[in-house]
Write a protein that binds this DNA or RNA. Sequence first.
DNA 1: CTACATCCTCTAGCGACTGGAGGAGCAAGT
DNA 2: ACTTGCTCCTCCAGTCGCTAGAGGATGTAG
Lengths: 138, 138
Amino acid sequence: MVSIKEAARQSGVKVPTIRYYEEIGLLAAPRRNEGNRRIFEEADLRRLIFIRHARELGFDIEAIRTLLSLQDTPDKSCAEADQIARARLAEVNQRIRSLVALRAELELMVEGCSHGHVSECRVIEILADHGKCLFDHH
Amino acid sequence: MVSIKEAARQSGVKVPTIRYYEEIGLLAAPRRNEGNRRIFEEADLRRLIFIRHARELGFDIEAIRTLLSLQDTPDKSCAEADQIARARLAEVNQRIRSLVALRAELELMVEGCSHGHVSECRVIEILADHGKCLFDHH
DNA sequence: CTACATCCTCTAGCGACTGGAGGAGCAAGT
DNA sequence: ACTTGCTCCTCCAGTCGCTAGAGGATGTAG
């Protein structure tokens, strides 16, 4: 029984994003008041929080759609949800590995910068000539 | 003196992406042959590799535009390049921190899944009720 | 000379929003 | 009752960094 603004505050999902989720059918269209304004119930808020949390965990909209439909059929096996989470975990691990490598490279660049002129700038140099990069991850 | 396909192969930037970079003015338009086809010189290839490497490091197009223009004025102080790299380093560090936290949460979800029914699935449960998540990073 | 590969331009689409225009509704103060 | 000012509505366009496809021209090998 709250306005869209209040729903946004409580769920942490921005107002236009809530409307967007409704538009793409991720969130069931809530009922409206006399003046055509959306009224959000507890269930809608819970669903919004579920979505926000899943988005923060990097699940894409399609994965969330599946997770939501699973949530609505509690008798089904959770193998599918588990599979989605595992796939996402593998992606996150991969992303961490490459970011750690990139951080090392950026540190090398920043540390090597002599704060002189561009012509002897390590930052520019490493970007221009990848061979100077100590890491061969990419 | 190579075709766009060969330039793509040597630089690691895909053919449509090379055309896109030209379109947005990140890459100077190369000269053409009789039949209107692009011919890439060594300098173009070097620039493409520079761009690709910077993109891999997560620099956005605007940052790369600045870095490229710095590269072209070697007498200027490299403070600006250093600043861009430092900002990017801070972003990467932040991203790593949050991904590590997310990984922990995903692991908790996957480990807690009893492979039974959705009703007692840890994956769904944690997503639905953020309070069950041990981490308060987000 | 015929296939077939490669190239060209142009336009539209992707994901996941974000922002703005133009107008209606509502709650509080005067 | 009226006005102010906030919130809400819909619709459409834009963001970023590409990616894909249509429809046609050009290049190359047999």
